[in-house]
């Protein structure tokens, strides 16, 4: 399969001027300025193939937005090579942007005071979409996103969730083969999120649209992306399947027992002495948590032993969430490969 995005050694530096403190400092600034060079994106390389859905994650300031802006042709890279859809985004900007769709969750693509369909019509003109293609494609998009009833309302009167769905539709007017989504679900309620995810999955299947998605909401990534690219301080610290990330990092599981009668540490340790178990007391005297390795025989062994000896009211097997995994990775600063 061909590469839709090919990034080699991409780098972006911002030169910023740092002012000295006080009046004296301000005077000195007039003559000699202190410039600091901040490397927002530091030598990253990756490729994305047609039809992939990739999650692009990282903390605030990790360089996500900056790299997306370079990929979409908004910013000029300091160094490195970018080829997206066979073009250099910044050099051939006007031709290039016809082949991509962009949604910035925090910024509207639509005109504030005019009706949604008027915005669509202007965009149709801007992208020079033939009537027939527009009718066919947009009918489907409008139906799937269920925005038909919103079309004659001005954008300023829409709720955030309604607006976001319209934004998505607007980004797809020219049916681009590649879609960039920067925080598309920020501030949305669960139902709208689900609908947007379903919609993205659908266009990915139907049109083979490649999607690059940045988000803080990891449930988006879990629902949509098989592959994640993780950034930290401008560098890629992980690039691979989400599944592998989970397997390598989510070592062990926790079993939470809620007993109907009191239990003591010694008692529990005695019960499970043949396995490697760490017992911890939970929220109350009746709740105990056993941390074990993620191995079926161990888990069922522990549960069997404990439930045979003691009466329990509730039992939960806790898996470490992706969110926790990511947090762990940031704490350690690098990703171990399994």
């Amino acid at each position: 399969m061909q590469n839709i995005i090919d990034v080699q050694g991409l780098k972006k530096e911002f030169k910023s001027f740092s002012s000295r403190s006080g009046l004296k400092g301000a005077f000195r600034d007039l003559f000699t300025r202190n410039y600091t060079i901040k490397t927002a994106v530091d030598d990253i390389s990756f490729t994305i193939k047609k039809g992939e859905m990739v999650g692009y994650i990282g903390e605030n300031g990790a360089g996500k937005s900056t790299s997306i802006k370079m990929l979409t042709g908004i910013l000029t890279p300091t160094d490195g090579k970018i080829v997206v859809n066979g073009m250099n985004p910044h050099k051939e900007r006007e031709k290039f942007v016809k082949t991509i769709g962009v949604v910035f969750g925090q910024r509207s693509q639509l005109w504030w005071d005019i009706a949604v369909q008027e915005s669509f019509r202007l965009l149709k003109k801007i992208y020079n979409v033939p009537d027939q293609q527009y009718e066919e494609h947009m009918k489907d998009v409008i139906e799937t996103l269920d925005i038909g009833p919103l079309l004659d309302k001005p954008v300023r009167k829409l709720s955030l969730g309604q607006r976001m769905r319209c934004e998505l539709a607007a980004a797809l007017i020219h049916n681009p083969p590649l879609l960039f989504l920067d925080e598309p679900t920020i501030g949305l309620d669960v139902l709208v999120k689900l609908r947007i995810r379903e919609f993205l999955k659908r266009i990915n299947e139907k049109y083979g649209t490649t999607i690059l998605l940045t988000t803080h909401d990891l449930s988006d990534i879990e629902a949509l992306c098989e592959r994640v690219v993780m950034l930290d301080e401008g560098k890629i610290i992980y690039d691979g399947p989400l599944k592998e990330l989970r397997e390598n990092w989510a070592e062990g599981k926790q079993i939470q027992f809620q007993f109907s009668e009191e239990a003591t540490l010694e008692e529990l340790q005695h019960l499970t002495q043949e396995h490697l178990v760490v017992w911890e007391k939970g929220e109350s005297d009746l709740v105990w948590v056993a941390s074990v390795e993620a191995d079926e025989t161990v888990i069922s062994g522990v549960i069997g032993k404990v439930t045979a000896a003691k009466k329990i009211a509730d039992l939960k097997i806790l898996e470490i969430s992706t969110e926790e995994i990511i947090r762990n990775i940031y704490v350690e600063g690098a990703v171990r490969h399994g």
């Binding site: 908004i74 900007r93 006007e94 942007v97 991509i100």
Partner: peptide, 13 residues
């Protein structure tokens, strides 16, 4: 206000 971002993602000068 960063509106230029939006302008630059459209295929018109």
């Amino acid at each position: 206000k960063g509106e230029m971002d939006r302008i630059l993602t459209r295929p018109v000068h």
